[in-house]
């Protein structure tokens, strides 16, 4: 496989991951927007936030998820969106782990406000695998971009651009 082919595949995979992660957040955010009161109940059950902040958090978080998802799909403000995505996932995982350690028998409140979905190892593993994917996205957005050309693919250190640079001096 030539380097260019490999880069194309890599580019497509990163796009796919971006869209998939975006879809997951939008899919998770909309039910919470529809039923904010129940979601606030789920947040309350986690017993992590001060009571005065529970409703504000329950109102804003679902929209943050949806808006970050939309930005990821549109490819707008990617660096900011990807950082927030990672930050949110890390806090979700932390909340899930803390609740498991405390032995709280509560609903996840992750993808719906349906309280039949509790927290178990599977829930934490699911979020952890999402974090892996979003860390990969972070890598693509930050590390790759720094070393990339304007097309957003890997550096084309071809002879074609070097003479220009030299000519500019």
């Amino acid at each position: 496989m030539t380097r260019n082919n490999w880069l194309k595949i890599h580019h497509r995979i990163s796009l796919l991951v971006r869209f998939a992660l975006a879809a997951i957040f939008i899919f998770a955010g909309v039910p919470k927007i529809m039923d904010t009161a129940s979601f606030a109940g789920a947040v309350y059950n986690y017993q992590l936030l001060p009571e005065a902040l529970i409703n504000l958090f329950a109102i804003i978080l679902p929209w943050l998820e949806v808006i970050v998802g939309i930005l990821l799909i549109l490819g707008v403000w990617l660096p900011g969106a990807v950082i927030i995505y990672n930050g949110l996932l890390i806090s979700f995982i932390a909340a899930l782990i803390i609740s498991s350690i405390r032995g709280l028998d509560i609903s996840c409140g992750c993808f719906s406000t349906d309280s039949t979905h509790g927290i178990d190892l599977w829930t934490i593993l699911r979020d952890a695998s999402m974090l892996l994917a979003s860390l990969y996205l972070l890598f693509v957005v930050f590390v790759k971009k720094i070393t990339s050309d304007s097309n957003g693919i890997w550096p084309k250190q071809t002879a074609a651009c070097r003479p220009n640079k030299l000519a500019g001096r």
Binding site: I59, P62, W63, L64, I67, V68, W77, P79, G80, I84
Partner: peptide, 15 residues
Amino acid sequence: WQIPVILLISACVAL
């Protein structure tokens, strides 16, 4: 600047 702007937009839309 993107992080606070995204947070702000989300807060405004949500509220």
